[in-house]
Design a protein around this nucleic acid. Sequence first.
DNA 1: GTCTATAGTGCGATAGAC
DNA 2: GTCTATCGCACTATAGAC
Lengths: 187, 187
Amino acid sequence: MARWDPGARQRLQTAALELYVRQGFEQTTVEEIAQSVGLTERTFFRHFADKREVLFDGQDMLQQAFLDGVRAAPPSASPLEMVAEALAASAEFFADERRPWSRQRHAVITANPALRERELLKSASLAAAVAAALRARGVADRAAVLAAETGVAVFSVAFAEWIAEDEHRSLAEVEREVLEELKALAA
Amino acid sequence: MARWDPGARQRLQTAALELYVRQGFEQTTVEEIAQSVGLTERTFFRHFADKREVLFDGQDMLQQAFLDGVRAAPPSASPLEMVAEALAASAEFFADERRPWSRQRHAVITANPALRERELLKSASLAAAVAAALRARGVADRAAVLAAETGVAVFSVAFAEWIAEDEHRSLAEVEREVLEELKALAA
DNA sequence: GTCTATAGTGCGATAGAC
DNA sequence: GTCTATCGCACTATAGAC
């Protein structure tokens, strides 16, 4: 194991998920994760702020996709149409090959309250960022927040369906369906 | 300080909020809180699972109000109308006298990511409970989750406006307004 | 890279309330 | 006597400081 292997971050992530799956999150120590890839505890904390953060690394890119989606919407789009664009953009992140991995990660997270808390914080940050992007496109403050929260809720519901056992539709498809159902509910 | 004082839990809560306000959440140790009311760290953890939980004690009663609201809705009510009932019921919890206290508590929570995480977990639990109540009233699974999440989002937005500096309307009033805006957005 | 503070747990002892 | 809140002590792991 090379000492300055540049893949340290990646290796720590992979090892952490595997250990969390095998033994549970709380039963796994940071020292254990680090040693399993030939590094020290200290190095782990140089890469990740805490023991949970290691599972939430791609989050920035997902958020970027959402924001790009909002910005790409036509000038005439309503707030909810901008959100629909953002959802479509987000779906490109989750190709069918990622389904098994997403399932595994999701199982670990939902099994542990501490990990659920972190996930919820990430979702809230995402919603706040989307709201800011909507505001930047001229949407009023309160409407921006509501539309953003709604969008993230639709994403969560769609994502949960997408990783269900017998599901085969694409995430984009499920998202569209869920969004339609939301509109129907509010009507 | 009588060892057997039955108000231990309440005293710990009050002392914790005061210290969190004065010195910040992270700068306050559990030992400090406990000693300030003549108890030990060990006793604190008998009453509260962790250092954050001490700020989230009334949550069960708020959730109960939501659930009672859902159950009190007329048989003909749509999912969103049931949610509107739940919101109205929730507003009774926050009389005008509680506004200053709510402001203070909210300031402490928003200032600290760890506390925000816990608050988000509580909101998610609330949404899950509301969804279950809607399902119990015959609402389909996905619609129940969407309506519940929407309701909690409306509550959060309304609550944030209610505790704003120059705000004087009742929470129930703000909630109705926010819900109307949501409907307009989805239309 | 070591050293330390703090969160949180487990278990056994104690001191009242009844 | 029982029951239960409180305490004391020893311990691990996280996380941050030096």
